[in-house]
Amino acid sequence: MKTRYFLVTGAVLMASGIVLAWGFFSLPKARVSQLQVPETREDLAPVIASLTQSVMALQKKMETLSEKVDRKMSRVEQQQDAVLKTQEVHEDSEEISDEQTRQQAEQWYERQIEKLDAVLVSEPKDDDWSVRTTGRLEETFEKLNDYEIKEISCSGTLCKVNARISPQDLQREGGIDGLVHGTMGWEGQTIASVDEETGEVTVYLLREGVDLLSESNAGEVE
């Protein structure tokens, strides 16, 4: 066992020695042969010429690249300007759209009121329902301290109330909606306006199940 160990160790040491010797004698020679250092000034001339050509070529490449970069930068700047202009135009159009929406909303409300007023006049009356609803309205208003009913008119499907209610009463009821829905518990649709400067209130109360507003705006009210 010991003999085999010494034999293997000896073989490894010999192999290492051979490799080191080959490296020492062969590698330096190869490096020198690759470099081929010129010995005279004449020998340097072609090397210098070749290097000069390379430098010139590199300069040209750099110039081309810098032109390309300049062109790209100017294109990016143009695109940025265009985006900024588009944003400004978009913001302007949104402002216009908001204003238009506000005007349209007021026009829509006016149209609804005109239609409801027309229904109120043209539609046949339902006396029973009319009397009952008028009674409920009067009873509700009686709970207020300071009010004046100017008009209560009903047809078969809706009633209109025009009144003045004091700001204190409106405040206590939580507005006209609190009065009509919370206190009175009106089951049908309502459309109301309150001028908070004058206390003038106009409410249209539609009979339960009647949907005059949506029907008159098919396709607009979802």
Binding site: D177, Q189, S193
Partner: peptide, 9 residues
């Protein structure tokens, strides 16, 4: 002026 709309109670 406050405008309001409701589907009912």
């Amino acid at each position: 002026v406050l405008y309001s709309w409701s589907g009912g109670t």
